[in-house]
Design a protein around this nucleic acid. Structure first.
Lengths: 212, 212, 212, 212
DNA sequence: GATGAATGAGCCTTCATTCAT
DNA sequence: GATGAATGAAGGCTCATTCAT
């Protein structure tokens, strides 16, 4: 018996379709909000048929869950890569994290709006914990380590956990501002705002434009 | 035999019922999220009939709109009163604002969750602007004025608008942390976090426990 | 025991209220159609409170029933009076009926629209029969008698019932045309249309402007 | 054991389902009247689910609109075909129109009742104009042309527009009579009634049984 | 794999009716 | 008599999910 020629790869189109649908979901959630996101609209945005969404993701909840996980991974990959590329000093690493946070590929209006939508929706929170909790914890732990090292290095006292938290919520808050149409300031000014906070905490190492 | 306690009055003046329904709405939005908030649930929470909600608020959207406006007014009144009670110095006023933000009557889990829910829902944002925009602007303008005065007073340079923004987003971010079950830290630690940021910005005037 | 002084008449205000509500009902039905007629709207139109409608008419159906009966009586009274005032000859009586039908007090846009609304609504038809059937039958019988006499008088053959029906449906049809905004012609032209039909049936007695 | 008859196909092409639902709508409107027509009842009558109605027609109003348009087209097609099949003389054409109007397929109790229901409902009138206005105008223009030609041919004076209107309202009025259960006379007698009117207008060309 | 018709649960809204004041 | 708040049933509409083709 002749060996049949290898069938065309099945897994690739499958994953491509899933990614296509997830990207469409991000757009729809960003545009219409969580409450008004429907599978029909997602399918329309992706240019696919309604039934296909349920074929690839069995339920709506599953689609949203996987979208959230996708964004969380993407976010973690982003700061992970930035960290690897950065120098060994804590101030270099913190600077890399901040710049990564404002990476134009991640810090997109749609991405930001989608984050906020998932975040505001109470029913997503347990889900969020499950899917993204570990990523978040890793990020927080990293920030705390860096804050600790920076505090030690600059001889400055204070609670490193609090400082780490200040840095984190400033970054988050600027994100949210950027997403709100009204608070209209640029991504650059957002970054300067984070630098303002960091330079207040570690004035020897950071200035208004970042790493000294 | 004890007489049963008098049942709640069947008829209530218009404003009392409206307030009752708004409070129920805040609870439901906090518990179930925006997307899963239904009029039936609001009515059930208030112990009233479904139809009454539409009698007092003509539509669901109107109910949510008025709930948002109610919370916005409540918030503004809170910091407005705190400001009036504070001393004339800018550091006293900033300190009063921070303490007001953590007022246990306002900084309630339900209130925080409801804020986040309204905030995350894209369709609420134009509404939010309309109802709360001016209150928010007043708050931001106030913070900027205080930052300016504090910077001048401490001889510290830097952009006052950025410092004001840092203070604001730290307060907002801590609020959001407090609402998330996971990030579990206390309101006191939240307040310390804000003090950490403020003392970094104006170390002569603020310490880790607030006003020096 | 002293006889109490006669109480202020109770029945008069009662009937006045009922008439007021019925007139409001006619207006609302005419303006919004049968399907969209609500008690709230009737009350509003009458300038009275919602609850009062149900006080005077126990149910909505009762209000509509009585409105229909009121209009039917009014209509019958109108042609009845016209008939009494007319001369003894059948052509005089038919002429009087036609003119009565276009009496500006009866042939009002609101009245016409309300008639059509009641009429088109299937659920009103049994009711209509019960309340107005006898009035209608009397009218039909009268027209048939007149047609018979006119046919005899002019020596013209033909079925008097058919002729009576032609006259009736022409009057009804013109009414309906007058109510439809589109078919816009004047009440005078409507009357000429009826005269056109009658003069075709009885040319010796009627001309294009009515009785010769 | 006999095989059960094949169940109706679960899936039907779009147009077939739409027509099926429109026919069900006509029946329900005829039976229950406009005000009491519900989508649930329409679905039940068609043997389909409630949601399907909204799938094919987005709103209730759209369903009713399309039903009206369907009936209007059907009516126009009916007299249009009759006219094409008729001879060239105006009396032949008018006779064909009259007979077409009493075509048993069109002059159905359900169809008549549905016409009346749509017609009586004020809110349908703008809709009616939009959907059927041009058909109606074409019909009126045709009747006026025929009346003109017939008047010229018979040397009879008089306003052709009035005569055309008499003919039209007699046909309409007989229709309405036929729909009312009470006025119970047969379709044949209805047709004779129209002939009575036409023969009065044009006695040389029409007799009590139609075209001489 | 892919499509889109079909289903049915659940929600918002309207509104006739009741009833305390 | 009069008012208007309160109730609850019923209808239109949306949408996740299923399924025949």
């Amino acid at each position: 018996m002749d060996a049949a020629p290898p069938p065309p790869p099945r897994k690739l189109p499958r994953d491509a379709r899933r990614k296509q649908l997830i990207e469409a979901t991000i757009e729809v959630v960003a545009e219409r909000g969580y409450a008004r996101t429907t599978l029909t609209e997602v399918a329309r945005k992706a240019g696919l048929s309604h039934g296909l969404v349920n074929f690839h993701f069995q339920t709506k909840e599953s689609l949203l869950t996987e979208t959230l996980a996708y964004m969380s991974e993407e976010y973690r990959d982003n700061w992970g890569r930035a960290l690897e590329a950065a120098g060994p000093e804590p101030e270099e690493q913190l600077d890399a994290l901040i710049r990564a946070d404002f990476n134009p590929e991640i810090c997109t209006p749609n991405r930001l709006a989608a984050w906020c939508a998932f975040w505001g929706e109470a029913s997503c929170r347990p889900l969020y914990q499950e899917k993204c909790g570990s990523n978040d914890e890793a990020y927080i732990a990293l920030l705390e380590r860096l804050a600790q090292e920076l505090a030690a290095k600059t001889g400055r006292g204070g609670d490193a956990a609090l400082m780490a938290r200040v840095i984190r919520v400033v970054m988050e808050g600027v994100w949210v501002d950027l997403m709100t149409q009204s608070a209209a300031y640029s991504r650059e000014e957002g970054q300067r705002t984070v630098h303002c906070a960091v330079s207040a905490l570690f004035p020897q190492l950071f200035g208004p434009d970042g790493l000294r």
